[in-house]
Simulated scan of single mutants.
Amino acid sequence: MINWSGYIGLILDGALVTIQLTLMGSALALVMAFLAGLGRLSRFFAVRALATAYIEFFRGTSIFVQLFWAYFVLPFFGISLTPLQAGILALGLNVGAYGAEVVRGAIKSVGREQYEACTALNLGRWQCMRHIILPQALLVMLPTFGNNAIELLKATAVVSLISLTDMTFQAQVVRAQTGNTLVPFTTILLLYFAMACVISWGVRGLERRMARGLDGVRV
């Protein structure tokens, strides 16, 4: 008889690593999304070119290759990362590239009259963006940001390839030790689904909260 309590505990330990990867990877992705998205809208060609190069490179190459580069290739350049750091870096940069286009598109979707109102009020470019444009654009960004966070959550499974003990890695360990596939992989299936539901619930709540205050932002 297999003592499943210990094995389930092992998978739950891996779930904590998955949560850590998701939270920290999403934070990095959010920063990169705004930097690159705003960079695409810059008046300076060099900034636009750099932002475009980042977006196209990370959208056009495999997350597997990016992860292996971060963990196995960067040490040749004197940059050694732990498996967790490599996972956060690869996931954050990859998802951030997709998020950048969300930022750019949402800002461009704000009506021209909002910009004209900023000019009429003699607001500077940064003041206009910070107080008028971004609050409205954020509401447009949120649903896709939520989807991106869920995609990042699911993509955390790739870190098992560099021996990071996330819950997919631990499920493989349990399968190897017990010879049972159904229990460990059904467990992580349900855990991934539960985490995705939490992300969706949180984003919808934030969206409703921001929508209530949006009328006070429009000019």
Rank of each mutant, 00 (worst) to 15 (best):
R175V: 01
L164C: 12
E151R: 00
N180M: 14
L182V: 15
D166E: 15
L138E: 11
Q170M: 09
A117N: 12
M141C: 13
W126G: 12
T181E: 03
V174N: 06
A155W: 00
K154M: 04
I132K: 06
Q177N: 15
P184K: 08
A120R: 07
M141S: 14
T181Y: 04
T186Q: 06
T187N: 11
T144M: 08
F185P: 04
F185I: 08
R175Q: 05
T156K: 00
A157L: 12
V183Q: 02
K154D: 01
M129E: 09
T187P: 14
R125G: 03
R125P: 14
N147I: 07
C128E: 07
I162Y: 07
L152C: 02
T144A: 13
L152W: 01
A157C: 14
L138P: 11
L153E: 08
I132G: 03
T156E: 00
C128L: 12
A137E: 03
T144N: 10
T181P: 01
V158E: 01
Q127H: 09
Q170Y: 02
V174A: 13
N180L: 10
A117Y: 08
T178R: 03
T187Y: 06
F145E: 09
Q177H: 14
R175D: 03
T144Q: 10
I133H: 03
A137D: 09
